[in-house]
């Protein structure tokens, strides 16, 4: 079902050898069955992302961007190929182990899904830690620390509908970061934000990468992809090219 065209070898995105590998996709394909048809969402995609890297994934609708992100974070399973997150091969994990890994190691930021309206900002951020069995007092302490780090400590007791779009997205990012998760997956996190607010969100994700997280950002906005160390272009489920910023420059 997957045709193996021997000709153009998709360029494998370069990696920084000095840093710990956080996520690795090796020849990952994802095929959906729709009625009698096979739909190839991803086709033999290989990608390595190390701690400290911010990678942007670009491509038109239906090119496989979100599928790639969901597979990297264990929300979806590859049809073939291997997916490693911090040394664990996701393909062979039991559903319960996979769920635990998702909660503890991976932070998600989406355009919408977002905050629970009946919980305050700090309660929203505490939630994943409480689900992890962390005591309320400690979860609260951790949540406040992260909110402080991203500059919205003063919003802790507000409810989502009392926050602006940019503030809500910051709180959602805090929730994705709490508990020292090293893999941050962001799917169009700048959604409907104006460009200055969107830049603030990217500044935040960039800072987390610089502090040692691996960040994968899906975006259709070149402006935000510009913040990445590497930009991967997807077409019809394949990586067709990648642009790496200033390979020689020291960070």
């Amino acid at each position: 079902m997957i045709d193996r065209d021997p000709s153009p070898v998709p360029p494998v995105a370069e990696e920084d050898p000095g840093r710990a590998l956080v996520v690795e996709l090796a020849d990952v394909s994802r095929v959906h069955v729709e009625g009698t048809q096979f739909v190839v969402a991803l086709k033999e995609v290989s990608l390595k992302v190390s701690a400290g890297e911010l990678i942007a994934v670009m491509g038109p609708s239906g090119s496989g961007k979100s599928t790639l992100l969901n597979i990297a974070g264990g929300l979806d399973r590859a049809t073939s190929g291997g997916v490693m997150v911090e040394g664990e091969l996701l393909n062979v994990l039991l559903p319960s182990r996979l769920a635990a890994l998702r909660r503890r190691r991976v932070g998600y930021v989406f355009q919408d899904l977002n905050l629970i309206p009946s919980l305050t900002a700090v309660e929203n951020v505490m939630l994943p830690r409480e689900l992890d069995g962390v005591r309320t007092a400690k979860a609260r302490q951790e949540a406040l620390a992260v909110l402080g780090e991203i500059g919205v400590a003063d919003l802790a007791e507000r409810f989502p509908d009392e926050l602006s779009g940019g503030q809500r997205q910051r709180v959602a990012i805090a929730r994705a970061l709490v508990g020292e998760r090293r893999l941050i997956l962001a799917d169009e996190p700048t959604g409907a934000l104006d460009t200055a607010t969107g830049d603030d969100i990217l500044r935040l994700l960039r800072a987390r990468a610089d502090a040692g997280a691996a960040v994968i950002l899906v975006t259709h906005e070149p402006r935000y992809a510009g913040w990445a160390d590497r930009v991967v272009f997807l077409r019809d489920g394949q990586i067709v090219d990648s642009a790496t910023a200033g390979l020689a420059s020291a960070r």
């Binding site: 070149p222 067709v240 090219d241 200033g246």
Partner: peptide
């Protein structure tokens, strides 16, 4: 188109880095 896109994206990455 693809070659230009990669080159322009690199420019954009460099500009963003300067802005940072």
């Amino acid at each position: 188109v693809q070659a230009q896109r990669t080159a322009t994206m690199r420019t954009l990455q460099e500009l963003t880095r300067s802005k940072r």
